[in-house]
Design a protein around this nucleic acid. Structure first.
Length: 894
RNA sequence: GGGCUCAUAGCUCAGUUGGUUAGAGCGUUGCGUUGACAUCGCAAAGGUCAGAGGUUCAAGUCCUCUUGGGCCCACCA
């Protein structure tokens, strides 16, 4: 007999168990011959990250998968780590410097990087600590950081290989430029958002006829400073005479020509478009085609540069205002119309990006995309839910080259070296190298400098599924000093089993990992990709700091417990659908944890020590178990069977709700209640104990802490619940007939409770009931469960008989093939009862009519599956029987 | 412009080969502490499954369209 406190206290237990698991290295995984590997690599959170609900959800999902497979006997490895997150981290440290009025330029590159490392050492493990709070069972000794020396070597290796293969090249072209971060961005890093803007109609006068002009329409009038042509469609009659004529660009007085180009949409604006080759991707193409001049008008921070004449040093938006004022004053502005447009925004700081002409490094993606496309098309890699396949393939099939150079300091510096001497002699002087180049390998000069740019963060993360293992080295020494054989690890754990992430990251990361997997490992990086929904607030908005609608998972953990957080999140995450969250949602998880706690408390209070040691088979083989016992065993294994199905198809919410329903509404509400009077019966003892302890094992992946805690009360000498095997389905115990029989008991008890409630009979007052049933079999069944009915329906006496007889002052209802009457000495409102009966009778009559129509339908009887028709026939006869009985009851009431 | 997704109880949502009486949590109402649990129990009310059409013996589920949300992609000057 063990006494537990009546309330579960997560705070006390969670840290205790996590510490224990970690100390005993329970999450460590090694290649073990004969064991099936199961691997997940964590989507590395940014070092600057703090745990938000998206993390909480995603990592709970991964932890469930890992713990589930670990329990099922797999060697489960969850590879952890963090991402250096170039721009994001640099911004954080810059902001910190700004508080002291300093800029990174004041420190210089080296000192600044030192600052970032210092910051990383101090705060970089925050997110890891928080993942531990969440219960994440990662193999922490293997924790990787994308800027680790070894990992950096992998990045260099990859750069050099791709360069040597001709897949990396330097190009001078228009890229997405963030004027605030002052760096180039990849297309994916500059998502388009709608803006309310204007369409400005500008008049460009002809050189030879200043009173006449061409009107161009633009949304970015300030770029006119860089115009070097005006284009019209050659088919456009309005401008037939204009082609080839010179215009004078207002404000700057540059002579520009009217050129003809088919790409011009005659229907848009005036049909004449100003061409700014240095500041618009389309104009760039046109500029190349027509050999136009490229005039860059912006400083890197998007202020106007010396090419902008008197507008020099003005910010782009200020310049826009002033230029419009000036054009207006000088008579060059025709009109302004409101116009909705969309523009790229920096994904790190949300500044509107500026298309900017510059020299950058690119990866040629098309060749890499070929096997990556095929792998998904053939189903070697599967997306869950499946609809993301299309999104992925669509992107892959339209893939663009990837701009990988960033003009920031924090990141992997591009392993390209330039020899000044060679360059002076007119040679290329470009050397790409895995190691630092100090002397020019061609001329021996020491006037060698490394490229100033660093690589896109994703250029390191795309190697995550194999570089974390130590690729391309032979060994990897982990954080605890253990040396791992890289080839052996990769041979065993790679390709990984599943990847769980958010949809936002499919292009950034998932797609690129698949390409890198094929390019460098000649194999897929993972088999299944699970895409979970976005966590939103209750109004459907994304959670963000600026909106102030964040629900902090750590606060929920503090208030409700980690298990409650995990369970609540999982139970509302259906099939990658977005999750709308309010704080109250977590009460469900907390209440459930408490329910588990109290049910366990109840079992332990009533448990004889011998029960835990008795093998279930002893009784089961004898077939002498009571119906409730056979029922709960069957229900447990049915539940377990379904649980496997759900988990293997990534239907986490259904899995969670299944476990919830079984425990609360079957095990607690019915089973424990029904065995209460005979709880000391050895068979009940064994069954309730076995169900509870097996349930804890099945529940452990979802709620690791409370299950471990309860486990130690249930089996104090058995060690951790993590050592326990998964409770495999015992198919021979599942008995649908037994389940159905028990349903009869439930229905009878519910019916009596119903009557009691409707008649307002006090719960404490026992009543006498009579059940009449003409079927011998049914009577036998009812007789067997009579004591349970008596107990749970609070009866003073229960008679089971063949024939219905009229009792004065009684109320009767019909359940299945049974007539149930309760006898009342007190006053019953006959009229009220009659009305209720009438309602039931007309309902039954309507149902009978519907069924009869259905069965009279020749098409149905002929075409529907025979068992369906048979089923309907049975139901009809049952309904008719019920009706007869109801009518009999009504008659008796008179 | 292309694509995806959602619309089911007062609220938030489940509902996977189309087949009994469409479920849960929260909320609401009534009754209740018989010592596992008031973070609880027993019961009740509440749904023309957005609208229209179609396929089918049978549609919340499949198809088409409409309406209204949300999201993603796209070089819409």
């Amino acid at each position: 007999m063990i006494e537990l406190p009546s309330r579960y206290n997560p705070q006390e237990t969670e840290d205790k168990w996590y510490q224990e698991w970690e100390e005993k290295k329970r999450f460590a995984a090694r290649p073990v011959s004969g064991k099936t590997p199961y691997t997940i690599v964590i989507p590395p959170p940014n070092v600057t990250g703090i745990l938000h609900m998206g993390h909480a959800l995603n990592n709970t999902i991964q932890d469930i998968l890992i713990r589930y497979h670990r329990a099922r006997g797999c060697e489960a490895l969850w590879m952890p780590g963090t991402d250096h997150a170039g721009i994001a981290t640099q911004n954080v440290v810059e902001r910190k410097l700004a508080k002291d009025g300093r800029k990174r330029q004041d420190l210089g590159r080296e000192k600044f990087i030192e600052e970032v490392w210092k910051w990383k050492e101090e705060y970089g493990s925050t997110i890891i600590r928080q993942l531990k709070k969440l219960g994440a069972s990662c193999d922490w000794d293997r924790t990787r950081f994308t800027m680790d020396d070894e990992y950096s070597d992998a990045v260099k290796e990859v750069f050099v290989r791709l360069y040597e293969k001709g897949l990396i090249y330097q190009g001078h072209r228009i890229i997405n430029w963030c004027p605030r971060c002052q760096t180039a961005l990849a297309d994916e890093e500059a998502p388009h958002h709608d803006l309310k803007g204007n369409l400005y109609y500008l008049k460009y006068p002809y050189k030879d006829d200043p009173d006449d002009f061409v009107v161009v329409a633009t949304t970015r009038p300030e770029t006119m400073l860089g115009d070097t042509a005006v284009a019209v469609n050659p088919k456009d009659r309005r401008y037939k005479k204009s082609i080839g004529r010179k215009l004078v660009l207002p404000l700057v007085n540059r002579e520009i020509e009217v050129i003809a180009d088919e790409s011009v949409d005659m229907k848009f604006g005036t049909g004449a478009v100003k061409i700014t080759p240095a500041h618009d991707p389309n104009d760039y193409v046109t500029g190349k085609k027509h050999d136009l001049e490229f005039v860059n008008i912006f400083h890197p921070d998007a202020r106007i540069n010396e090419n902008g004449g008197e507008y020099k040093d003005m910010d782009r938006f200020e310049a826009r205002e002033v230029i419009i004022e000036d054009l207006k004053e000088q008579g060059f502005l025709e009109k302004i119309e409101p116009h909705d447009l969309s523009a790229g925004h920096c994904y790190r700081c949300h500044t509107i990006i500026e298309p900017y002409l510059s020299k950058q490094w690119f990866v040629k993606m098309q060749p890499l995309s070929v096997p990556a496309t095929a792998a998904v098309k053939t189903g070697r890699i599967k997306f869950h839910p499946d609809r993301w396949t299309k999104v992925y393939l669509n992107w892959m099939e339209n893939i663009q080259d990837w701009c990988i150079s960033r003009q920031i300091w924090w990141g992997h510096r591009i392993p390209v070296y330039y020899c000044a001497d060679c360059r002076e002699k007119g040679k290329a002087g470009v050397h790409v190298s895995r190691t630092t180049v100090q002397k020019c390998p061609e001329c021996g000069s020491s006037r060698v400098t490394q490229d100033n740019d660093v690589l896109d963060t994703w250029f390191s993360s795309w190697l995550w599924p194999f570089a974390t293992f130590g690729w391309p080295k032979e060994t990897r020494t982990d954080n605890a000093g253990t040396v791992h054989n890289v080839a052996e690890d990769l041979g065993y754990f790679y390709p990984t089993s599943a990847l769980s992430t958010a949809s936002e990251i499919i292009f950034f990361w998932v797609a690129r990992m698949i390409m890198a997997g094929f390019e460098f490992m000649a194999d897929i990086p993972f088999k299944d990709v699970y895409i979970h929904g976005t966590v939103r607030d209750i109004e459907g908005r994304k959670m963000s700091k600026s909106l102030g609608n964040i629900i902090d998972p750590l606060e929920i953990i503090k208030e409700y417990g980690t298990d409650a957080l995990r369970f609540s999140l999982i139970s509302i995450t259906s099939q990658g659908q977005d999750v709308y969250l309010s704080k109250e949602r977590f009460e469900q998880g907390r209440n459930f944890a408490n329910k588990m706690w109290n049910a366990s408390r109840f079992v332990l209070m009533n448990l004889e020590p011998s029960a835990a040691k008795t093998d279930l088979c002893v009784f089961f083989k004898k077939e002498d178990l009571s119906l409730p016992n056979r029922w709960i065993l069957s229900r447990f294994y049915s539940t377990l069977k379904e649980l496997d199905t759900y988990l293997n198809s990534y239907r986490f919410n259904e899995a969670a709700n299944l476990l919830y329903h079984f425990f609360w509404h079957e095990f607690c509400d019915w089973y424990l209640e029904i065995i209460k009077p005979d709880i000391k019966d050895p068979r009940n003892q064994v069954v309730m104990y076995k169900i509870l302890e097996k349930y804890m094992r099945a529940m452990h992946p979802f709620m690791p802490f409370i299950t471990e805690e309860i486990w130690h009360y249930l089996a104090p000498e058995a060690g951790s619940i993590m050592d326990q095997p998964w409770p495999h389905v015992q198919g021979q115990i599942i008995d649908k007939k037994v389940e159905k029989q028990f349903d009869t008991a439930v229905n009878v008890i519910t019916a009596i409770r119903n009557m009691r409630s409707e008649l307002e009979i006090a719960p404490a007052q026992a009543v006498e009931a009579v059940i009449a049933n003409t079927s011998r079999q049914s009577r036998d069944l009812l007789t067997g469960i009579a004591p349970h009915i008596t107990f749970l329906a609070r009866l003073s006496r229960l008679a089971i008989q063949e024939k219905q007889q009229h009792h004065p002052s009684s109320v009767t209802t019909v359940v299945g093939d049974s007539h149930i009457s309760i006898l009342l000495e007190g006053i019953v409102d006959i009229d009220k009862e009659k009305k209720k009966l009438d309602a039931k009778i007309s309902r039954a009559q309507a149902d009978i009519k519907a069924k009869e129509n259905m069965l009279a339908n020749k098409a149905f009887v002929e075409r529907a599956k025979p068992e369906v028709v048979e089923n309907e026939r049975t139901k009809l006869s049952q309904l008719k029987e019920t009706l007869t009985k109801l009518q009999g009851v009504k008659h008796a009431l008179r």
